[in-house]
Design a protein around this nucleic acid. Structure first.
Ligand code: FES
Ligand code: FES
Lengths: 149, 149
DNA sequence: TATAATGATACCATTTTGGTATCATTATAC
DNA sequence: GTATAATGATACCAAAATGGTATCATTATA
């Protein structure tokens, strides 16, 4: 199967969780891991990774946690995938040209590159802003009587 | 890295090799493996797989080999990828919905599905006919023997 | 009948994956 | 100022996937 790995999926869930909070909210690993069903120790590592990659600010010590370092509008799914998973290469040789001794005479190569670009392009256009908005809509069932609580 | 695996790359090379021959040509594993730099025992397995998947006809016995079972114009890169590698899922849950307990309330899901469709769509449009034609064009280097055909 | 090809499949070492555990550090709450 | 609740960093692990080899059986030709 050609798929992203579990960690990448988890990271996306985590960032989405952050993006769904009011701006500036600090979230603890515990909370996010429970809410988005990510195994806690793995969530620990992923939060760290996302912080090191510049997506999150960390707040250490009691009462601490993580908050977004950038606006959800400026974080794309592509960035997260590549931060966790490494490049979207599609074929190894698009990223390590020395890998394939045929590269100078390989007509398939160009198509792997183009397909990769198509995919990267799409993922690059998906922002966590969009995702969060989409998430919130079905959450508050439009309740004309104002009984949300 | 998000990539196809080596076997898939090899399979594509092999099918391209076939597609570049005059229609109906029978090719031996030895020959193709050498020409496209695929380790021989692995090439054996891949030819078998491609034959079982309906891409190739086999000719057993001395003087045998493999030939295309379908026109190169009707074989897409996508089909080969999925035959060797399994589905282009992008995220596991697009193919095994029970995988993710969040699927009913996961706004990312839809984007994985769409991104996957974009990728599958592109790969589905690349035929080995095109690839073979593109391969032959730049072959302007005069062949030591007979030249172009 | 010897030979040259594929069919099928078992085997293997290495890497990747998904996950856990631990100890160190930091900041708050009281 | 100390107990506590959080992150930082990293080591560890089992299981699966990956990339590759080897072997024996079968088939058809020369
Ligand atoms: S060299 Fe990149 S696909 Fe052949
Ligand atoms: S359920 Fe498919 S991405 Fe969340």
């Amino acid at each position: 199967m050609l798929t992203i790995n579990r960690k990448t999926d988890y990271a996306a869930r985590i960032l989405l969780h952050l993006a769904m909070q009011p701006p500036g909210t600090t979230v603890t690993v515990q909370e996010a891991a429970q809410a988005r069903l990510v195994p806690y120790p793995l969530a620990r590592r992923l939060f760290s990774l996302l912080a090191n990659a510049g997506f999150l600010k960390t707040h250490r010590g009691k009462g601490g946690g993580f908050s977004l370092a950038r606006s959800p509008a400026e974080i794309s799914l592509l960035e997260v995938v590549e931060a966790v998973e490494g490049p979207v290469a599609l074929n190894r040789c698009t990223v390590e040209p020395q890998e394939c001794p045929l590269v100078s005479d390989c007509p398939v190569h160009e198509e792997w590159v183009k397909a990769r670009d198509v995919l990267r392009d799409y993922l690059g256009r998906v922002s966590f802003q969009q995702l969060a908005e989409r998430a919130i809509q079905p959450r508050n069932h439009p309740d004309p009587r104002g009984g949300a609580q």
